[in-house]
Design a protein around this nucleic acid. Structure first.
Lengths: 130, 130
DNA sequence: CTTGACCTTCCCGTCACGGGAAGCCCCATA
DNA sequence: TATGGGGCTTCCCGTGACGGGAAGGTCAAG
């Protein structure tokens, strides 16, 4: 399987797959002409990576998850810890965004948005610490 | 006012202030010894920038907002448009994070987290497209 | 034989800075 | 006066996770 086909299967750009090889997440074999030759196991790893990245895990998290995925004897407690830490990060990020959203939508609501030069949004940004 | 003092006032690292000068957001004068010399107007701009960045605006948004802030004759409609676009981006980002959160917390809930080697989280990542 | 699609490596650009080196400058204290 | 310790300057590299694009090899079809 060449790179384009595995890319379509995994739902990743070819560039990303080359990058994943660069940083050691996958190790596809090479054909005689130098082309990467992906086995079914490579495709499965790439699909796994695509999903894990889609869930927002960092590359280093993905590296750890992939190692746990490959090593069937590992306990699931480690996986759960990684996932729970990531859930914490997601929750924190959502809270930050919601704070921004609250402040900003308040300012937008106070702004008439007409041709008057004085704008409550600008004044809010200038004066309000968040 | 030297850089450290204005940094404390604006709530920004000195490095960030130098960077903002590099990319043309501010233009502080220079003292005879080459030190940056910040006037009150510079401090106000930096405070404005710190708040706008705190609300999640990109640097280029901040550049536009700063121009509008400086140019008192501009209409507030432009500001409102920028802010509303940013609110859209925030809402989109929150939605993405919430989708990740939903999927992942579902998987975590299904995982006993004990010493058994088969982990629903790993299987979920391997099999589920998001 | 040529064309066009595919593949390769390599290098630079992204965004918004942070770290750290090398080297002035200024003030206070011994 | 020497010296020490900050503070200031510029400059360059690194971050995360790739994307764009150049230069060039390879393959299948017509």
């Amino acid at each position: 399987m060449n790179i384009k086909e595995v890319a379509a299967q995994a739902g990743l750009p070819a560039k990303t797959i080359r990058y994943y090889e660069d940083i050691g997440l996958i190790r596809p074999k090479r054909a005689a002409n130098g082309y990467r030759s992906f086995a079914a196991a490579d495709a499965a790893k790439l699909t796994f990576l695509a999903h894990a990245r889609g869930l927002g895990f960092t590359i280093e998290d993905c590296r750890a998850l992939l190692a746990l995925y490959e090593d069937k004897s590992r306990a699931s407690a480690e996986v759960k810890k990684l996932a729970e830490n990531h859930l914490d990060r997601i929750a924190t990020k959502i809270a930050e965004l919601r704070a921004m959203q609250a402040t900003l939508s308040h300012l937008v609501h106070a702004c008439a948005g007409d041709n008057r030069p004085d704008c409550p949004i600008l004044q809010g940004i200038a004066g309000c610490p968040a």
